[in-house]
Nucleic acid binder design. Structure first.
Length: 529
RNA sequence: GGGUCUAUGGCUCAGCCAGGUAGAGCACCGGACUCUUAAUCCGGCUGUCGAGGGUUCGAAUCCCUCUAGACCCGCCA
């Protein structure tokens, strides 16, 4: 196995790029520029899974370049899609826009030209933060500029054949009787309420009627209007079952990943591309969706959706890239509790790359080093970043709430975890601190203070209040416990509960000095009758 | 009805997609340090890798069958 030929950097990304190139060669297509595509979706809040589609496509682009080809990523926003469901926490007035194109609905947050652009931008910002480069294109422009008009024409004149095939491949019957095209109603501006029933090929117009439609659990009222829609002017769009195929040909797309939820659509689109449009379909890879953690309480509030923006409150961009590049198969339950694992795993990977951790299996070593390179988007840092266990930082973050960064930095120096204060570590403390604040999992214990303990606390307050600094506070506390016939273990526990809200904590003498004797005295006094 | 994924220590999972000595964290046990707790450090335990068959010099990993669970599609995009 040592003499095995390694493709690229030895990861699944390289293998995929290799397969893609081999397939293109066998088809005989030109390879001077290989476009890879990712669809963005513009109707919901972009989950980290949607980001994954683009990030992984970008990985394939990198792998292709690494193999010596030119490649670019298209990020395509489906902003002619209609609004189907109003995301949690969004204003009610959006109800009147159900069924309309997301690119023609006002932005509820007033910062973009439309609802659709707002959603797409959230995803694009995520990509920007990960330093992923893309060529942004919108369905709106694509259709308005007539870029798909030839494909739409060909698809519509073959609609009968396509309808039968859709039924065969996916079990969906509707396109046997309806054209795979959604016209925007000229009267009420909705598109999911229209039914296209005839194609006038000479005029390149579709005849439609507007009627009630069920979208999810909502019934959207149609306006009974009947009209004609010019397919060259962006007044409607193809149904998903055929739209990819049209776009692949128009944009010359050679690779597109997809989630298993649209598997059927991809099957149909591949067939349409091959047999109707005579454009060999792009190479694909199917990935599993990220699921929310089961069994755990998941708040539906916006703050708990796993988006890149939320993730970056707790983890670095590299931790996201690691999540998305480490593998593509396998169902994943994903939650913010994965941040610490990935943060620490990145450090480990970096140690492997720089030879601080030895891997005995050569093939695995190559693969892990390759993974490290992809996580760095093939731009490798000259030196490893400072490493501090993210878990330790969370632990410290739970303890130090005020002046957190300074105090934790001091502790890290005390512990000998780091030698110098470095800005990178400051950022890590902030991230882990956010995590500690938002996901505090420490148990809250009921506080029981008996007479002896109360006396002990009073004694301690007296010591803390006095002007002279106790020589060995740790020892003083121990002596107070003994004097009042409290098992020291219990006394310490009580102190932790009062000061930190936990039954455990750092060595308490130095800790009290850290926080300030007066402050602690004040806190303790509240627990004395 | 169609399809995909998952099953590995007490718990959570990695390793599988390019076969080469079964791993980590947590938990647990022991030790060091501290006149106490915690933290930290060192050491240790825990495995029919869901079941059965096949390929191979060699299988957690590849192939087939089965079992159990999760999810997706069969509205729509």
């Amino acid at each position: 196995m040592y003499d095995q030929n390694v493709i690229g950097k030895g990861t699944w990304i390289d293998k995929l790029a290799f397969e893609l190139v081999e397939r293109e060669k066998s088809i005989g297509r030109k390879l001077d520029l290989i476009w890879v595509e990712s669809g963005l979706g513009a109707s919901g809040i972009p989950h980290i899974g949607s980001l994954g589609d683009a990030v992984r496509a970008f990985g394939v682009k990198l792998a292709l370049e690494n193999l010596g080809y030119k490649s670019e990523l298209i990020a395509y926003s489906d902003d002619l899609d209609g609004l189907r469901k109003i995301p949690e926490g969004f204003p009610d007035w959006l109800n009147e826009h159900l069924g309309k194109r997301v690119s023609s609905i006002p932005d509820p947050f007033d910062c973009h030209d439309s609802y659709g652009m707002h959603m797409s931008s959230l995803l694009l910002e995520g990509l920007d933060e990960l330093e992923i480069k893309y060529d942004f294109r919108r369905a709106k422009d694509t259709y308005e500029n007539g870029l798909l008009k030839d494909q739409i024409h060909t698809i519509l004149i073959n609609s009968k054949k396509i309808g039968a095939k859709v039924s065969e491949l996916s079990g969906q019957e509707k396109y046997q009787t309806v054209l795979p095209y959604f016209a925007v109603c000229e009267n009420c501006d909705k598109l999911y309420t229209t039914e296209s029933f005839e194609y006038l090929l000479d005029e390149k117009k579709v005849k439609y009627r507007c009627q009630d439609a069920t979208i999810g659990s909502n019934v959207v009222k149609g306006c009974r209007y009947e009209g004609e829609s010019d397919i060259t002017k962006g007044l409607g769009k193809l149904a998903w079952k055929v739209e990819f195929a049209a776009r692949w040909q128009a944009f010359d797309v050679r690779f597109e990943a997809y989630g298993k939820d649209i598997m059927d659509s991809v099957k149909v689109n591949d067939w349409v591309a091959d047999e109707i449009l005579k454009y060999p379909h792009p190479h694909h890879v199917r990935y599993e969706m990220f699921l929310d953690k089961g069994g755990k309480k998941i708040s539906k509030s916006l703050g708990n959706v796993v988006t890149s923006q939320n993730w970056l409150k707790y983890g670095t961009p590299k931790s996201i890239l690691l999540l998305l590049y480490k593998r593509i198969t396998g169902a994943r339950e994903l939650g913010f509790e994965d941040v610490p694992y990935l943060m620490d795993e990145y450090n480990e990977l970096e140690d492997i790359y720089f030879g601080k951790i030895k891997i005995d299996n050569k093939a695995k070593e190559i693969k892990l080093k390759g993974l490290y390179e992809y996580v760095n988007l093939l731009k490798i840092p000259k030196n490893p970043s400072p490493h501090v266990s993210y878990r330790l930082l969370i632990e410290l973050g739970n303890i130090f709430k005020e002046e957190r960064n300074n105090r934790i930095m001091k502790k890290l120096l005390d512990y000998g975890v780091i030698k110098n204060e470095e800005p990178g570590i400051n950022e890590l403390i902030t991230l882990a601190g956010n995590f500690a604040d938002d996901f505090d999992q420490r148990e809250k214990l009921e506080l029981l203070i008996d007479k002896n303990t109360e006396k002990g606390l009073a004694d301690l307050v007296e010591v803390l209040d006095s002007d002279k600094e106790p020589e060995d506070l740790q020892n003083v506390i121990y002596q107070i416990a003994k004097k009042n016939e409290i098992p020291p273990k219990d006394f310490f526990k009580t102190l932790y509960q009062i000061i930190l809200g936990t039954s455990r904590g750092p060595k308490i003498g130095p800790f009290i000095e850290d926080i300030g004797r007066n402050k602690i005295a004040k806190t303790l006094r509240n627990h004395i009758q």
